[in-house]
């Protein structure tokens, strides 16, 4: 038991190492873009106010009435901030595929080595899974730190009378991107990550189906995705189906949803295990 755990940690560290350059690049892009945004937007704002005051020889107050005060939200909704997040999400989504396919593609078929390791093959599955989640959380953590820094930077760059007073959290909550991605509301955050986890399990399963049965595997994979979608959405449509919106409490519907997501995860893991142990081809 101890030995397999050590092997698993080894493998996870190994996968993390392979991903690190990619992750550093994402972090780098995020920080650089954010920094530009944090500086550029306030400077442009103060420039504009100052220019307006000089051109029209009006007071600060009048200029602000025209342009409005700057809020952190004005910075958040620029692509300097949203861009890297969208990039991170889509890059990790792509990486979920790449993390498997790179073992087969290219000059070296590393799949041979991985599949012939004297450890349970599901270790490969879990280590890839963990690594993607570690990256997601790393990016989120970096984003939070960056935002806190950006908030303070903005406050330092712009005179406080020119700022609309809005708290850090309310600025973040205003934008759906942050509302869903950052841990602002514990339940939302949990739900989003829960859905993400199930989604990743299903994605891995589809990849393994393709690796095991090639073209036929893609068709089976699409069918599987449709079935999981039906199962996942079933609780939401249940009130429609039975024609009674008051039959179940919302909390009961929530439990049903959690159960159906759990079922999907569990089935995906079972299918993946079967494929890795019995059907996979190098």
């Amino acid at each position: 038991m101890k030995k397999t755990l050590k092997a698993f940690l080894n493998l996870t560290a190994f996968e993390l190492d392979r991903l690190s350059k990619f992750l550093y690049a994402l972090i780098g892009v995020t920080l650089v873009a954010n920094m530009i945004g944090y500086v550029l937007i306030p400077l442009r704002f103060t420039d504009r106010i100052n220019a307006y005051m000089v051109q029209n020889s009006v007071t600060e107050q009048q200029a602000l009435e025209v342009y409005g005060e700057l809020s952190f939200y004005d910075i958040l909704q620029t692509s300097w901030i949203l861009g890297p997040i969208a990039l991170g999400v889509s890059a990790l989504l792509l990486y979920a595929f790449f993390i498997w396919y790179r073992e087969w593609l290219g000059k070296n078929t590393f799949a041979y080595r991985l599949l012939m390791l004297p450890i349970p093959r599901m270790h490969i599955f879990y280590s890839k899974f963990v690594v993607i989640y570690v990256s997601i959380f790393t990016l989120i953590a970096i984003q939070i730190v960056s935002l806190i820094f950006g908030f303070n930077l903005m406050s330092a760059l712009v005179p406080s009378e020119w700022l609309r007073h809005m708290s850090f959290f309310s600025a973040l909550s205003m934008h759906p991107f942050f509302y869903y991605i950052l841990p602002l509301e514990p339940w939302i955050f949990l739900a989003i990550n829960g859905i993400g986890l199930v989604f990743l399990h299903v994605t891995f399963t589809v990849i393994l189906l393709e690796r095991s049965f090639s073209v036929k595997g893609i068709l089976i994979g699409i069918t599987y995705v449709l079935i999981t979608l039906l199962i996942a959405l079933f609780p939401a449509f249940l009130p429609e189906l039975i024609g009674n919106h008051y039959y179940l409490y919302n909390s009961e519907l929530l439990i049903l949803t959690v159960l159906s997501l759990g079922l999907i995860s569990f089935t995906s893991i079972m299918i993946s295990r079967f494929l890795l142990n019995k059907k996979i081809t190098v």
Binding site: G106, N108, T109, F110, Y112, M116, L117, P118, I119, P120
Partner: peptide, 19 residues
């Protein structure tokens, strides 16, 4: 089973270590 990979080794006709 995977534990038997300690007992039997395969050397394929392809580079299988990381480049």
């Amino acid at each position: 089973t995977s534990s038997l990979y300690n007992k039997i080794a395969f050397i394929p006709d392809a580079a299988i270590s990381l480049p």
